[in-house]
Simulated scan of single mutants.
Amino acid sequence: MNKPMRMLGTGGRNAWRVDETSADLVRAPRVPRPVSLEAPPKRVTIDLARTGIIVIDMQNDFCHPDGWLAHIGVDVTPARAPIAPLAALLPELRAAGVPVIWLNWGNRPDRLNLSPALLHVYNPSGAGVGLGDPLPGNGSLVLELGSWAAAVVDELAPAEGDIHVAKYRMSGFVDTPLDSILRNLDLTTLFFAGVNADQCVLATLMDANFQGYDTFLLEDCSATTSPDFCMQATVYNVRQCFGFVTQSTELLEGMAAAR
C-alpha cells in the first residue's frame, strides 16, 4: 500500500508533495474568485483568491494620543481616521479568506538595524525623544518591537491568523521578509492602507508595483498627518503611475455582489 505523500510548504498555497523517493512540484490549482469594483477612471476586476491587504503603521506611536507623534506635538487626529473603515473592512476580508498583513515599524532593542541617517530624521538634535527612546509619559520605547508604542491600536486588534511583518524603513520591502511571504501566499493583488499615506504607505506600494504586484490604495483607509496637498499628490501619483485608487466601500460592495 502506497504511503500518502507529505506536504512540504507553507499553508498549502505554495507547497510540494514529497516522500522518500519522489517529489511532486505541481501546486494545487486556485479557483478564481472575480470581484469587480470601481477604481476611477476604470472599473477593475480582481481575483480575490490571490488578493491580500497590507495595513501599515496603525500603531500607538503614530495614532494614539499618548504615543510618540502626539508627544512631539503632531496632531494625530488625521492618523486615526482609517480606524473606523478598517474596523468594518478587515473582518469581512478575513471571512473571505483574504490574508491580512500588518506591516509595522518595529526596531531591534539594540538599534543595530538603524543608521545614523535614519535616526537623524526623527531626532535631528540628538537630544529629543527618538527611535528606541522611552516616552516620558509611560516609558514605552519608541517603535521598539514588542513595546506598547509599536503595538497596533486597540481598536484594530489583530486576529489570530493575521500575519505580522516588522519593518525599519519607509518601504516595507527593504530588509524584511515581506516579498517572500507574499510569494509564498501566492498573492498578486495587494490593497494598501494605513499611515502615513505619503510616506510609508506610498513607499511600500511603489516598491510592490516595481516588483510586479497589482496595487490598490484604499483612500478612505489611509491618511497622513502631513499637509493636505501631500495626500492629494499621493492619490494623484498612485492613480497616474503606480496602480489604482479605490474606497473600502467599493471593495465591500464588489465582494457582496460576487457572493
Rank of each mutant, 00 (worst) to 15 (best):
M1Q: 10
N2R: 14
N2Q: 12
M5V: 10
R6A: 11
R13P: 05
R13W: 07
A15N: 02
D19S: 07
E20W: 02
T21D: 10
A23T: 15
D24K: 02
L25G: 04
L25W: 14
R27F: 14
R27N: 11
A28P: 02
R33F: 08
P40S: 13
P41F: 09
K42N: 10
D57R: 11
M58D: 04
M58P: 09
Q59P: 08
F62C: 14
C63Y: 00
H64F: 02
H64I: 01
G67D: 01
W68Y: 13
H71I: 01
H71W: 07
D75I: 10
D75Q: 10
T77Y: 00
P78M: 08
P82D: 06
P82W: 09
I83M: 11
A88L: 12
P91E: 06
R94F: 09
R94Q: 09
A95L: 09
A95W: 08
P99Y: 01
V100C: 12
V100R: 00
I101S: 04
W102R: 04
L103E: 06
N104W: 00
W105K: 03
W105E: 14
G106R: 08
G106F: 01
P109A: 12
R111I: 03
R111N: 11
L112Q: 15
N113A: 08
L114I: 15
A117T: 11
L118I: 14
L118W: 11
L119Y: 01
V121W: 03
Y122N: 13
P124C: 04
A127C: 04
A127K: 15
G128L: 13
G128S: 15
V129F: 07
L131S: 03
L131W: 07
P134F: 00
P136L: 03
P136M: 04
P136I: 05
G137S: 13
G137A: 15
G139Q: 11
S140A: 15
L145V: 01
A150F: 04
A150R: 06
V152Y: 01
V153Y: 02
P158H: 05
V165W: 07
V165C: 12
Y168N: 15
M170Q: 13
F173T: 11
V174K: 11
L178Y: 05
L178E: 04
I181Q: 12
R183T: 05
N184S: 14
L185E: 11
F191D: 03
F191Y: 08
F191C: 06
A193Q: 11
G194T: 06
G194Q: 00
N196F: 05
A197L: 10
Q199P: 00
C200G: 12
L202I: 03
L202G: 03
M206K: 11
N209E: 02
F210G: 00
F210P: 00
G212L: 09
Y213H: 12
D214G: 09
T215R: 00
L218Y: 09
E219Q: 14
S222N: 10
S222W: 06
A223T: 02
S226R: 14
F229M: 10
F229A: 08
C230A: 15
C230W: 06
M231L: 15
T234N: 07
Y236I: 04
N237M: 12
R239C: 05
F242Y: 12
V245Q: 07
Q247C: 09
Q247H: 12
T249V: 13
L251K: 06
L251G: 09
L251F: 08
E253C: 13
G254N: 10
A256H: 13
A258H: 07
